[in-house]
Design a protein around this nucleic acid. Sequence first.
DNA 1: GCCATTTTTAAGGATTTTATAAGGAAACGA
DNA 2: TCGTTTCCTTATAAAATCCTTAAAAATGGC
Lengths: 225, 225
Amino acid sequence: MMPKLLVVDDDLDMLSLVRAALEKDGHQIDTEADAATVQPARCQLYDLLLLDVMMPGEDGFSLCRRIRAEVDCPILFLTAKAEDAALVQGFGLGADDYIKKPFSLAELRARVNAHLRREVRQPTHTLNRGGVRFDMQAKVASAGEHTLPFTKGEYSICEHLALHAGQVFTKEQLYEAVFGFDAEGDSSAVAEHIKNIRAKLKVDAISPIETVWGVGYKWRKNSVL
Amino acid sequence: MMPKLLVVDDDLDMLSLVRAALEKDGHQIDTEADAATVQPARCQLYDLLLLDVMMPGEDGFSLCRRIRAEVDCPILFLTAKAEDAALVQGFGLGADDYIKKPFSLAELRARVNAHLRREVRQPTHTLNRGGVRFDMQAKVASAGEHTLPFTKGEYSICEHLALHAGQVFTKEQLYEAVFGFDAEGDSSAVAEHIKNIRAKLKVDAISPIETVWGVGYKWRKNSVL
DNA sequence: GCCATTTTTAAGGATTTTATAAGGAAACGA
DNA sequence: TCGTTTCCTTATAAAATCCTTAAAAATGGC
């Protein structure tokens, strides 16, 4: 989903400049030239606000003061006011960043994206082993940038091996650890899962699961990284 | 609870300067002069990390790269490198701020406090996720300009999933989270609600609820790069 | 090199889980 | 009370996973 941003600045040239820069990152930009017409309720629609500080009529600080209580999204100030006092005041009003003019558009984009990214960052219980990243909350494993299409059983076996990297498990132990109890023909079922796991990891040219002949399987320990 | 911060810088004078400034705000400061000795696991103890970029041995960028995947807290760079390219690179590594030296201690404090404040700020009135807007006070959800005709139960399940985007919930967990306790045939009831929710979201061509086969449901986590 | 054992691979059916649809009970407001 | 809405149950269809079976390949000991 495209993030929606609102930019408030009385300088129309600046507005179109900022709009052009941020649209490159695929954001949807609304602009407003007059702070006084900005409604707090409308601000709730946005994922991020960019406010110029010095504007005729209502200034950015005043606008921020009006809306901050009802808006949870990041608020960034764009300003030529370089004094420390103004900066501290801006942050004191609940702002999240304070970008001094003149700024490069590259910096603007980097900062905006950083704030948007943070909005979706959440405490995660993740495990990184051998190039595979396990999100134990989402029950999802990924390699590099893409998600590995593990089934539930495959994921569980994989996670269990990775969690106890270096330790060898027999097929029976694996089955019991993952599915809770001992079944009959479990060993061949586990072998099947291992096969599928390896096939899915092969796409990324990684094969962290080693076979210990006559015993079982283990996750290769610390490939340096 | 006092926020705990870690500052990594090879310049001992800078370390003590920064420490003194941040302790004024009541933060607890740990310092480290050698990036190479910083363990990712230890970083999880902190609420915020301040990294110098240019250090002998391992530099700040390298350190950030090592730990970002396992650390959820804000990471701020302190640097004399003023070029745009370095700044963009820093943010690209998942950093949250990039403070150029020389900086005033007032600015440092303001920025650090802004980041810490944001960590504890959470959606109170409205929540914007995946194109759906939740008014958590009115218990109303909307997409675009029109209101979604959710029933109370549907809204609650939907909001709970959106609030904990990325986390998988079993049907039983969802039922308990929403209706307060465990019922008998809850699982099929939840499935029915999910169906209705998806049908109502389909009008707007959005389907943020994914089923994790054999586990439950989750709200798709936005990835804003 | 040969054999017994173990692992890997492949394919198919059995099982489990989810999606969908329809109907009835319960709660709610008029 | 009536009618509406919401919620839950049940039944069936559809989908995905899991397990079994059997054959091919690999391994280790002799």
